[in-house]
């Protein structure tokens, strides 16, 4: 409906003899270092260093292999990254939840970049399965809900829920399952009357403990279908992101909403970055997975 109305309005504008031409916007951007590194207590520390480029450069991002990357835990040296090629770097150690980390990266004549993160706690999750019926296409398969208790700890937490599935041998993963609870952050909610709750959550499910700090957050993730050889959900994951990674995910999704939207006057989104003198993200998260 809205598309149609705008087409009509645009038609009027055309009546006013609108004129369209391709233009080159003259931006003078020098490449900057871009660092992407998310700490996770379950894995060793890896980072990637690349260069940014102008918007009119449609080529691949240039990787930086001559960087010196150092990671500190509090005021102590945690480790120096080992180059792995193709812009990748590694420290073969695992970070610890609750600790503060700082990264510093230098490369050639580019500005030195730095950032800090505090590794959040693992989400505490209790759950139970509740069978609610059978699949419409196969009555031998149970359909069940996952009743979840997310026991929030005092302090600000930023939860993201996603899952990974296998269908005919192909792996899928990401957010977007329909969840209807008060705790949902509706920043990416889009109305869709065709679906169960009347809306979808675009590209991710974010739960906020705002107003429920330190309390048990109870909700239902509905309509899982009993696993078969060809189709099954491996796990549901609860990710607790530090403030930087959380804002990064959020602005990434908003950017995508903007790019795919057909609305003509969408407020642009500035990508969140906590990298001083550069781009990218240095954040952290802790993930609790529920195997199904």
């Amino acid at each position: 409906m809205k598309k149609k109305s705008f087409l009509i309005i645009l038609g009027f504008w055309i009546l006013f003899s609108s004129c369209e031409e391709e233009v080159t916007l003259d931006f003078d951007n020098e490449p900057k270092l871009c660092l992407n590194c998310i700490l996770n207590p379950d894995s060793v520390v890896s980072a990637k260093l690349t260069l940014s480029h102008r918007l009119d450069n449609s080529g691949k991002f240039e990787t930086v292999d001559n960087g010196n990357l150092t990671l500190y835990e509090g005021n102590e040296l945690f480790g120096i990254f080992e180059p792995q090629g193709n812009g990748r770097y590694l420290i073969n150690k695992r970070p610890v939840e609750g600790k503060t980390y700082k990264i510093i990266a230098e490369a050639g004549s580019y500005n030195t970049i730095s950032a800090t993160t505090i590794l959040p706690d693992f989400p505490v999750v209790e759950y139970s399965k509740e069978i609610i019926g059978h699949a419409s296409y196969d009555s031998t398969l149970d359909v069940y809900n996952l009743n979840v208790q997310l026991k929030d700890k005092p302090g600000k937490d930023n939860y993201w829920i996603y899952e990974n599935n296998v269908v005919s041998g192909v792996k899928y993963g990401g957010g977007g399952r329909e969840i209807n609870t008060l705790f949902i952050d509706d920043f990416n909610k889009e109305i869709d009357t065709e679906v169960k709750y009347g809306f979808t959550l675009f590209l991710g499910v974010r739960l906020s403990d705002e107003g429920y700090d330190g309390q048990s957050m109870d909700f239902v993730i509905s309509d899982f279908i009993e696993a078969t050889e060809y189709r099954y959900t491996e796990a549901v994951h609860f990710l607790n992101a530090d403030e930087h990674y959380d804002k990064y995910i959020k602005t990434s999704i908003l950017n995508r909403i903007k790019e795919t939207s057909d609305l003509p006057f969408f407020e642009p989104v500035q990508m969140y970055s906590n990298i001083q003198n550069g781009y990218g993200i240095f954040g952290s998260c802790a993930i609790t997975s529920v195997k199904l």
């Binding site: 931006f27 951007n29 871009c34 991710g204 990710l239 781009y279």
Partner: peptide, 30 residues
Amino acid sequence: SVADVEYEGLLTPGRELADYHYDWEVIRQT
């Protein structure tokens, strides 16, 4: 506000578990 710079980004949570992803998923414009 017009995006004038592009850099490499991270996949959103869970997408790294998939067998495939699209180019746009790792491009950030800002």
